[in-house]
Deep mutational scan, measured.
Amino acid sequence: MVIEDPKTNKLIEVEKLPDGTYKVTIYDKKTGEKKTITMSKKDLEKLLKAL
Protein backbone atom coordinates (compact mmCIF):
# COMPACT_ATOMS: atom_id res chain seq x y z
CA MET A 1 0.00 0.00 0.00
CA VAL A 2 1.35 3.45 -0.90
CA ILE A 3 -0.01 6.62 0.66
CA GLU A 4 0.87 10.13 -0.50
CA ASP A 5 0.77 12.94 2.06
CA PRO A 6 0.31 16.19 0.09
CA LYS A 7 0.93 18.35 3.19
CA THR A 8 4.47 17.06 3.71
CA ASN A 9 5.15 15.97 0.10
CA LYS A 10 6.08 12.46 1.26
CA LEU A 11 5.21 8.99 0.03
CA ILE A 12 4.62 6.28 2.64
CA GLU A 13 4.89 2.67 1.51
CA VAL A 14 3.62 -0.07 3.84
CA GLU A 15 4.48 -3.75 3.43
CA LYS A 16 3.34 -6.57 5.74
CA LEU A 17 6.15 -8.90 6.79
CA PRO A 18 5.75 -12.65 7.45
CA ASP A 19 6.24 -12.17 11.22
CA GLY A 20 3.15 -9.92 11.43
CA THR A 21 5.02 -6.61 11.66
CA TYR A 22 4.96 -3.90 9.02
CA LYS A 23 7.86 -2.40 7.08
CA VAL A 24 7.19 1.30 6.56
CA THR A 25 9.30 3.22 4.04
CA ILE A 26 8.98 7.00 3.94
CA TYR A 27 10.22 8.83 0.83
CA ASP A 28 10.74 12.59 0.93
CA LYS A 29 9.97 13.75 -2.61
CA LYS A 30 11.81 17.06 -2.14
CA THR A 31 15.15 15.75 -0.86
CA GLY A 32 15.05 12.17 -2.14
CA GLU A 33 15.67 10.96 1.42
CA LYS A 34 14.40 7.47 2.26
CA LYS A 35 13.77 6.08 5.76
CA THR A 36 12.68 2.54 6.55
CA ILE A 37 11.31 1.41 9.91
CA THR A 38 9.53 -1.68 11.19
CA MET A 39 6.51 -1.32 13.45
CA SER A 40 3.63 -3.26 14.92
CA LYS A 41 0.09 -3.06 13.55
CA LYS A 42 -0.95 -0.95 16.56
CA ASP A 43 1.82 1.61 15.92
CA LEU A 44 1.03 1.65 12.19
CA GLU A 45 -2.63 2.43 12.93
CA LYS A 46 -1.52 5.38 15.10
CA LEU A 47 0.70 6.66 12.28
CA LEU A 48 -2.09 6.44 9.70
CA LYS A 49 -4.57 8.22 11.99
CA ALA A 50 -2.09 11.08 12.41
CA LEU A 51 -2.06 11.75 8.65
Rank of each mutant, 00 (worst) to 15 (best):
K16V: 14
I12Q: 02
K35L: 06
T36F: 07
P6F: 07
Y27Q: 09
L51W: 01
A50L: 04
I37G: 11
V14I: 04
D5L: 02
T25D: 11
D43S: 05
K7R: 03
L51V: 11
K23I: 04
T25A: 11
G32W: 09
T38H: 12
G32H: 08
K30H: 14
E15M: 03
K10P: 05
I37Y: 07
V14R: 01
V14N: 01
P6Q: 13
K35V: 14
G20P: 00
E4P: 00
M1K: 00
L51P: 05
V24F: 01
D28W: 01
P6S: 04
K29D: 11
I26Y: 06
K16M: 13
P6I: 13
G32S: 04
D19M: 13
L48W: 03
K49M: 11
M1G: 14
S40Y: 06
K42R: 10
L17Q: 07
K23M: 10
L48T: 01
E15Q: 09
D5S: 02
G32D: 12
T21G: 14
Y22C: 07
V2S: 02
V24Q: 00
V24W: 01
K23L: 07
V14T: 09
Y22V: 02
K30Y: 10
E4C: 14
K46M: 10
E4L: 02
T38N: 08
T8I: 04
L51C: 07
L47Y: 10
G32Q: 11
I37V: 08
L11G: 02
P6W: 03
K30D: 10
L17P: 00
D5F: 05
I37P: 00
P6R: 00
S40I: 10
K7H: 15
G20T: 07
A50N: 15
K41A: 13
K30E: 14
T31V: 05
A50M: 08
I26V: 09
T38M: 12
G20F: 05
T38D: 11
E45A: 08
L44D: 00
T36W: 06
L48K: 02
T38E: 09
A50D: 15
Y22R: 02
E4R: 00
K46L: 14
D43C: 10
K29L: 12
Y22N: 11
G32M: 08
T36V: 14
K49P: 15
K23D: 06
K16C: 15
Y22A: 08
T8A: 12
V24N: 00
L17S: 09
T36M: 08
Y27K: 03
K34P: 01
P18F: 12
K34C: 14
L17I: 13
P18E: 13
L44S: 01
D19G: 08
M1Y: 01
L17H: 10
D28T: 02
M1T: 05
G20K: 03
K34S: 12
D28I: 02
G32F: 07
Y27M: 15
I3F: 07
E13K: 05
V24P: 00
L11D: 04
K7I: 11
K30N: 11
E33W: 04
S40K: 03
E45K: 05
P18V: 12
E33P: 01
T21W: 10
L47F: 13
L17V: 10
Y22I: 04
D19C: 08
N9S: 06
I3R: 00
L48S: 01
I12C: 01
D19A: 06
K10E: 13
M1R: 00
K29R: 07
T31D: 04
K34H: 10
K29C: 11
I26F: 09
T36R: 07
L47P: 00
K34Q: 11
E15P: 00
I37A: 11
